[in-house]
Simulated scan of single mutants.
Amino acid sequence: MSEPFVGEIRQFPYSFAPHNFAYCAGQLMPIQQNTALFSLLGVNYGGNGTSNFGLPNLQGRAMMHQGDGPGLTPRVVGEAEGAATVSLIQTEMPVHSHLMTVKAAGATKVTGSGSGSYLSISLLPTNAQQPAYNNTTTGLVPLASTMLGMAGGGGAHENRQPFLVIPFCIALFGMFPSRN
């Protein structure tokens, strides 16, 4: 591994931060022991700027470049956006129920059972090795609306991209990047 630039962020597949790196987990660092890194990051990620400064917090986040472009909103260094879950408002997803129907198949009445019918999917053998499902709509019975419960109503839902957990680490020491 080549010597990193101070403040360079890399991903490592280890359960620890390598030597001279720290996790990007938003922790506060003392300025006195990390003057080069503080001169690059400042207080963009937290801290008071007199005795400490914050490292970026990339836990559960995706990185995005600063700046803007045609049709895009501007982004600044250290800005955190998004949410792991989102609650929908009433106009987006009003409270509602789902209707479910099932096929009621006749059966020989068993002592103590109700009407002598049971819920089923009828199998019609097309050949000995692969039965076919009877998908006709005859004999469908609606279940009570209380069987499935209510949906919507401001409940939160998952909002994250698919992900693979590999921690981000920032170089505490190394070559100081030149400004061209």
Rank of each mutant, 00 (worst) to 15 (best):
L99E: 15
L99S: 15
L99Q: 13
L99T: 12
L99K: 15
M100D: 02
T101D: 06
T101F: 03
T101P: 00
V102E: 00
V102S: 03
V102T: 04
V102W: 04
K103E: 05
K103P: 01
K103I: 04
K103F: 00
A104P: 01
A105G: 11
A105F: 04
A105N: 10
A105D: 11
A107W: 01
A107E: 07
T108G: 03
T108A: 12
K109A: 14
K109I: 06
V110D: 02
V110F: 10
V110A: 14
T111L: 14
T111D: 13
T111S: 15
T111V: 14
T111F: 09
T111C: 05
G112A: 07
G112P: 12
G112Q: 11
S113C: 06
S113N: 09
S113V: 08
G114V: 09
S115L: 08
S115Y: 02
S115E: 08
S115V: 02
S115P: 00
G116S: 06
G116W: 06
G116F: 02
S117G: 01
S117R: 10
S117P: 00
S117F: 07
S117Y: 04
S117K: 08
Y118Q: 12
Y118A: 15
Y118I: 12
Y118N: 13
L119D: 05
L119Y: 14
L119A: 13
L119G: 07
L119Q: 09
L119C: 07
S120T: 11
S120H: 05
S120C: 06
I121Q: 09
I121V: 07
S122H: 05
S122G: 09
S122Q: 13
L123T: 06
L123M: 12
L123I: 11
L124K: 08
L124D: 13
L124P: 04
L124C: 08
L124S: 15
L124Q: 15
L124R: 15
P125N: 09
P125H: 04
P125A: 02
P125Y: 00
T126K: 15
T126W: 11
T126A: 14
T126V: 10
N127Y: 02
N127E: 08
N127K: 10
A128F: 04
A128L: 07
A128S: 05
A128W: 04
Q130V: 14
Q130G: 03
P131S: 11
P131G: 07
P131T: 03
A132V: 12
A132P: 00
A132Q: 15
A132S: 14
A132W: 01
A132K: 04
Y133W: 01
N134D: 14
N134W: 01
N134M: 11
N135E: 00
N135I: 04
N135Y: 01
T136V: 07
T136C: 00
T136M: 00
T136W: 00
T136H: 01
T137S: 10
T137D: 08
T137A: 10
T138G: 10
T138S: 13
T138W: 03
T138R: 11
G139E: 03
G139D: 03
L140V: 12
V141A: 01
V141L: 03
P142L: 11
P142H: 07
L143Y: 07
L143V: 06
L143S: 10
A144P: 05
A144R: 06
S145V: 12
S145M: 14
S145Q: 13
S145D: 11
T146A: 13
